[in-house]
């Protein structure tokens, strides 16, 4: 039986509308970043305008933005690196050497995600103040490591479980030790999923706001904080500049779009098989 045509047509229209709504607000923001203020503050939205790079060059020329960019890059980069070094081996151990605590360990790692960020940020602020590390990058890196280690570990466990056991067994028979099986077999075979997990953890800390807001006052501000401060000066700041800062802030996570959607696909392909 063929489905009724109008229903199908409506369904397609709804989907197309959803697809439009998914990207249009962002596209509009990007367009506004290229507009002069007079072209933004109009009652009827302007689609045709003379583009300007003034907003973008203004943003890239401000010290606060550059410092924020630097802080974000260092804090997120270092935290992700720590997450890789500590999270991947631990995930492999859970995946391949099951013991009776494996379930509890997985639950513990997941439960770190239940902790309300305020509940972590308030005491950490007091602690960092007391040891004199408040408003420094090391404090932020250590705090973010909790996030990256647990997320990478959580996502890497199924990735390592997806590596066919036979390959590893064969390597053992060939005389490989447990560590070289991890290095030379498990890591390379699971690499694609692992890169997805790592990219995800990067996006998570890059986008983090509350903890960075509470743990920095001037020196260690990350880019999201700097961007939000631009608007605290009221709507007097030219909108084009605000829009440009939003675009700058959003670009790095969007660079991982391909990697992450590939990761999603591989997760579900595994489930199917």
């Amino acid at each position: 039986m063929k489905p009724i045509r109008p229903g199908r047509l409506i369904a397609k229209a709804v989907l197309a509308l959803a697809g439009f709504l998914a990207v249009f607000p962002l596209v509009w923001t990007a367009l506004n970043a290229l507009k002069n203020n007079v072209d933004i503050i109009t009652r009827v939205p302007k689609v045709v305008f003379t583009p300007t790079l003034a907003n973008i060059s203004y943003i890239l020329g401000r010290d606060s933005v550059l410092t924020g960019l630097y802080n974000s890059a260092v804090a997120c980069g270092a935290a992700v690196l720590i997450g890789i070094v500590l999270g991947l081996p631990a995930a492999y151990a859970v995946a391949r050497y099951p013991n009776r605590f494996a379930g509890d360990i997985q639950f513990f790692v997941l439960s770190l995600r239940f902790l309300p960020p305020v509940a972590v940020a308030i005491p950490l602020m007091v602690i960092w103040l007391q040891i004199g590390l408040y408003d420094t990058l090391p404090a932020l890196i250590v705090t973010y490591s909790l996030l990256t280690i647990s997320v990478i570990m959580w996502l890497a466990i199924p990735a390592f479980q997806g590596v066919p056991k036979e390959i590893e067994e064969a390597a053992f028979v060939d005389g490989y030790g447990a560590y070289s099986v991890f290095w030379r077999i498990a890591l390379p075979v699971a690499a694609r999923s692992l890169i997805g997990a790592i990219a995800f953890s990067f996006v998570l800390v890059w986008n983090e706001f509350l903890i960075a807001l509470m743990l920095s006052s001037s020196n260690a501000k990350t880019l999201p904080i700097v961007a939000s401060e631009l608007s605290q000066q009221g709507m007097n700041v030219p909108w084009g500049i605000l829009n440009a800062s939003v675009v700058l802030l959003s670009l790095p996570p969007l660079l991982f779009l391909g990697v992450l959607s590939g990761f999603l696909n591989s997760v579900f392909r595994q489930k199917k098989s």
């Binding site: 998914a22 990207v23 509009w28 503050i41 986008n207 706001f209 802030l249 969007l254 779009l257 999603l264």
Partner: peptide
């Protein structure tokens, strides 16, 4: 569609908030 639908969640919450704060502006 999958590619399009993943884009919003990748945005920093701060960015998403700004994008819509502008969009909700009563005049512009």
């Amino acid at each position: 569609y999958c590619l399009l639908f993943i884009i919003p969640v990748l945005l920093p919450r701060v960015s998403a908030a700004f994008v819509w704060k502008f969009a909700y502006h009563p005049l512009y």
